[in-house]
Nucleic acid binder design. Structure first.
Lengths: 354, 354
DNA sequence: CTGAAAGCGCTTACAG
DNA sequence: CTGAAAGCGCTTACAG
């Protein structure tokens, strides 16, 4: 894929981008024959303005296309009404959907929302410092589903309003989380109940710096197997996407003893499905495959994977609401809002007849 | 799915969020025994500062955890280095990937990026006005893939730096676009070359207010059919997601004459695939199915849909670069950067043997 | 109901 | 190399 052309060739025009500076409150005031404070009052919907004056000002505002300078407003008033979302990614469904929560909720509440994607290269402390600076008077939501997010979260100063959507019972800040461990327990029990002897697991990367096996989903599986008296086989692979699942799936497909595979998310499950298909192993006939997250396309692939439904959007929205409480009332809500994931049985898992 | 609990019950604590106001340049100056301008010089990497002075200031900055107030900086300097992305959605792959472009590029260039999702409810003029206000000194990127985006784009004042990623040869602003029409022509010719008599089309919503049939993808198909002497059947359905594709697919599956289906995107194709499957029609044996966009999961479903690859991320990145040129140099690039989509043949389309 | 004054935290000339 | 002055566009008391 290449950039193939230019619409209009020829010498570059130096159109001096109409340096028509945005009109200020003062110009509007002059045009309306009032002081600039009165304009401020009208702009802010202050009641104490005579109707006739208000009309004159409104006319002038319309004429100039006046739009209050956001920086000046923020500086003078001290209120920013801005939230910055820190996330290591914005494209995979879990992230995009979680991001959608604060975006919607913030918009509805009149906050502006910024996004800063965290990369392994940048220094989390610096990134957080920048976000903090931008958020003066506002706050930060961090999507702490992975190492990068967790690292950023850990570096947010205690006095900066911040909430997070995390995978595990969170650090000492207001946060929202889904009980992944319980969900993984339920999924594993579901599979054991279907007659499977054990449940191999294809892992997503762990949120903290710890071993993958300590991640909530991995841990939930471990618990369920243990209490059924089964020694949990170690997790396979580590990744987020279908190619990673495909790789792990190829490995697992070689083992004829494998009758079911639990995956850390739906994209992994998709890759595993594909690998099983290539290896000539029928799903769910020979092998059952089950994922997490209920990505939007999940219900439409064949066989549709059994999955664990997660309300990421709700999670994100709740994170913003928690943040807003802090920003607007100086009240630090101690709650950890917990979301309960839900098992959605579909075609890819079935009762073991053997 | 419900909010099921609170982490720590009990009476709400009113932790007075450490009103430790962020340190200002003046406090730092005092601590370092210099004037606040000198601190400003150090912060901005100005060369004319004695090394010893610089060290003192840096120590004070570290001690206070000083972080320049973004609003004050923007107000005083007039530079914002901020870009607001206007988009009607942020979750579907085409949007999320396009959004990723400006996010990455802006981050690399030291810009902050804001996202504003457009909804059918809000007044595009007001939304744009708000974005404009925030973008004072910065600029706007609009993802104009649909009606909402196009409407917003049309309302951005001429003197506000703005670029867009659009589907069709764009309005009178710098913009980037992919030649969807040519891509659809190529896809259609590909299918005709495979021996299909005609090519039904499941449409995505048209970007402008015009009829769906005038959208670039629809138009490309029409052209290819016309030049092959085939009267194009009208487009079916209109939507973005798998459920919409499923609905259209059920309709098409009833018609035994249908041997191929071209879909406006991969999610539609997925839905169509599912419907064909349910109707007992084999893909690609009975019917070929082909989509657009190469969504990340596309290669992993079975049968993998033939698709048209689009570099959305590159598109978004280019849009930002175009914007940056305007913001930083007052130069209005006249170019329309064109991306060429690429046909990726996969399992879901094959030569017609009948 | 309306205006004159001071200040938000920074930068940009201008002096020294 | 460093500091005193003025100002960015707005708001928030304080007068009238």
């Amino acid at each position: 894929m290449h950039v193939t052309g230019h619409g209009s060739p020829g010498p570059p025009r130096r159109t001096p981008r109409t340096p028509r500076k945005a009109a200020s409150i003062r110009e509007v005031a002059e045009a309306a024959h009032v002081s600039h404070q009165t304009v401020s009052r009208v702009v802010n919907g202050h009641p104490n303005v005579r109707q006739e004056t208000r009309s004159r000002v409104e006319a002038a505002i319309a004429e100039f296309g006046f739009c209050r300078n956001a920086s000046a407003y923020a500086l003078a008033s001290g209120v920013t009404r801005a939230v910055t979302v820190l996330t290591s990614n914005s494209v995979p469904h879990a992230y995009a959907a979680t991001l959608q929560g604060p975006e919607e909720a913030a918009r509805a509440a009149g906050y502006s929302v910024g996004v800063r994607v965290l990369t392994p290269e940048d220094d989390p402390s610096r990134t957080v410092a920048t976000a903090t600076a931008t958020a003066t008077g506002g706050g930060i939501v961090v999507i702490g589903f992975d190492r990068l997010g967790a690292a950023a979260l850990a570096r947010v100063p205690a006095d900066v309003p911040c909430t997070s959507a995390v995978e595990a019972p969170p650090p000492r800040r207001p946060a929202v989380w889904a009980d992944d461990r319980a969900a993984a327990r339920a999924a594993t029990r579901h599979l054991l109940g279907l007659g499977h002897r054990t449940v191999p697991y294809v892992a997503i990367p762990a949120p903290t710096g710890s071993r993958a096996s300590m991640a909530p989903r991995a841990e939930g599986r471990r618990q369920a197997l243990a209490s059924a008296g089964v020694t949990p086989p170690p997790a396979i692979g580590e990744g987020w996407d279908a190619p990673a699942g495909h790789e792990a799936g190829r490995e697992l497909a070689r083992d004829p003893g494998v009758t079911v595979i639990l995956c850390g998310n739906d994209d992994l499950a998709l890759g595993v499905l594909r690998a099983l298909h290539h290896a000539g192993r029928a799903v769910p006939g020979d092998v059952s495959d089950i994922g997490f997250d209920d990505a939007p396309h999940s219900g439409f692939v064949a066989p549709a994977p059994t999955t664990v439904l997660m309300d990421f959007r709700g999670l994100g929205r709740a994170a913003f609401q928690l943040l807003r409480t802090q920003v607007e009332s100086d009240y630090r809500p101690p709650e950890l809002t917990l979301f309960a994931p839900e098992l959605v049985p579909r075609e890819s898992s079935e009762r073991r007849t053997a």
